[in-house]
Design a protein around this nucleic acid. Structure first.
Lengths: 331, 331
DNA sequence: ATGAAAGCGCTAACAA
DNA sequence: TTGTTAGCGCTTTCAT
């Protein structure tokens, strides 16, 4: 570094006080007279002094940063860039970090050496970490090293988490479709190993079983292309499908494209209901009826939990998943 | 902090060497014999030692972090969360930061006290900052305090920048529509003050003028709702429109919804061409033909520039904007 | 109320 | 090659 920033010693000298007094004045700490505080303020302004957060962090032992960890399945660029989820968690965190003088550090850890990277992040964690989409095993690993952590997806029981009712949401979606008169309700699911995908699949299965409907499932891998292909395939195999429950909006947008490209109308011939209420839902045409996952609120809650101290082991904060009606389901 | 992590002193003691030797071994520095290195490695493993990056940063004077700054016009949550742009810049940066032991710090600065926040970030910058969407005035402010900065949008001449050919891209889009036989080409523009929006508008104007077409412009504010409304209005005022150039995909997705909701077909009756090639383009139905803004590549380049040292004042790296043909334009 | 001085955990001159 | 020592810029006892 070639920065030649003024230090607190400069401020102290210009103000004609000791470094300790300068520090007290700058941090609004107790034990400094108003006249001296004023001189320090003047010196700060004159020099354009900005405290070095690194030194401050070392001296106090706490750095006031919250880490966000996302695992990059395959190429980090692909997942992080194309899935609307991450920007929503960031969007949810930023406002609560506003004005509390805390940094937001973003980490994309690769799959291979994930364990080591997690360890290192945990070792340097300060306020703590928000686990955006990590497996229970890795979450446990982090938790063992630092308890200042909260997961945003279903995880190991010990790890604090904010979680949405994915099962209930999926069930509600299918029930809704059933109320609308649909009887051949297909589903497009996410990756087998994804905790959220697992729950949404369970919710679908639970609903069709209760309602006495057939299980018409396909896999879409949480990606738009997968949703497109799955919908095509479903339509080919079961031409009488009158509705689709799609486990994420991105896939649902693809599914709608496939349905209309195949010459059927949405929602007149087939109703589609997505999951997430992400940007993909409003960009789809017709706009998607979907189950809203309150990602921003969850991320905000997770951040507040960290700001408030060390979350209790096993802590759970639940969030409802609610129906948002748009135009992809019939009246 | 109640962390009780082992320090390098513990490692040194366990390994039976001095702290200096331990440091040398840990950092693969020169001047340490293999046997001692081995003992240090063993001690590190035994204690589960992880170097404290803060202390390291203070000692070396460089913290190896790159900052990303996004200005939050209105609510920070809204903009950051709903616009696909930011996640693309993050996605572009992450891979180049991989394995170089550098953190990514994210800042959303509010509009009111933007100047101060910018100053503070600049003062604590280490590798430097990527300005995602900042005004020329603020960029200049940052540049004055730290030269380690690169803007991703058109900016003041002194500030280093990576920039795409927005004017040329917009012109090319209109030209393309003209080649396709369209003669009533409307446009939906972004915010008046947004540097990218300004250039895209200029490109449209330049093209219609050259081609002898009428200027059919409306404003959409770079948001989907704005695109929807602008398209409705355009269609009402000029029923003979046969194409639309829309300055961003998010607005274009809205425009397509408005067009089809109004009973016209895309692309048969009206062709639509967007800008960005964001997630909104592939979620739209039909999928959008668009001008691809290589955001990830630009963000990666910006990051590499910072990693390589202090970018030269006024540095410019240009990126092409290319046509991506999908289904929203007629053949 | 103020200042002197001791660290925070680490790296990097300098000595040995 | 190894160890000793002096900081990095700041906060925070502890005297005064």
């Amino acid at each position: 570094m070639s920065r030649n920033q003024p230090t607190i010693a400069d401020v102290a000298r210009v103000a004609g006080v000791s470094r300790a007094t300068a520090s007290r004045a700058i941090n609004n700490g107790p034990g400094a007279s108003e006249p001296l505080r004023e001189r320090v303020r003047a010196a700060v302004a004159e020099l354009g002094y900005q405290p070095d957060e690194t030194a401050r962090a070392l001296a106090t032992g706490r750095q006031r940063a919250v880490d966000v960890i996302a695992v990059s399945y395959g190429s980090s660029a692909g997942w992080l860039g194309t899935h609307p989820y991450f920007s929503r968690v960031l969007a949810g965190m930023m406002p609560v970090l506003e004005g509390v003088n805390a940094q937001l550090r973003l980490h994309a850890v690769g799959q291979e050496n994930a364990a080591e990277e997690i360890e290192e992040i945990a070792a340097n964690a300060t306020l703590g970490a928000v686990l955006a989409d990590i497996t229970p095993a890795l979450a446990t690993r982090f938790h063992r090293r630092s308890r200042r952590v909260v997961s945003m997806v279903p995880t190991a029981t010990a790890v604090p988490a904010v979680q949405a009712d994915n099962i209930g949401g999926a069930d509600a979606a299918v029930s809704r479709l059933h109320e609308l008169g649909c009887r051949r309700i297909a589903a497009i699911h996410g990756p087998d190993l994804n905790p959220c995908a697992i729950d949404r699949r369970a919710g679908y299965l639970q609903a069709v079983q209760r309602l006495g409907l057939p299980d018409l499932s396909a896999d879409g891998g949480f990606l738009r292309e997968g949703g497109y292909r799955a919908a095509q395939q479903l339509l080919a195999q079961h031409p009488d499908i009158d509705a689709m429950f799609v486990a994420c909006d991105l896939m649902a947008a693809g599914a709608i494209q496939a349905i209309t490209a195949g010459g059927r109308r949405v929602p007149d011939e087939v109703s589609v209901i997505g999951f997430d209420d992400s940007i993909a839902a409003v960009c789809a045409n017709p706009p998607l009826t979907t189950m809203r996952l309150p990602v921003e609120e969850m991320a905000a809650a997770a951040t507040r939990l960290l700001l408030a101290g060390t979350p209790a082991t096993g802590h759970r904060q639940r969030f409802p998943v609610e129906l948002v009606v748009r135009a992809s389901t019939r009246k």
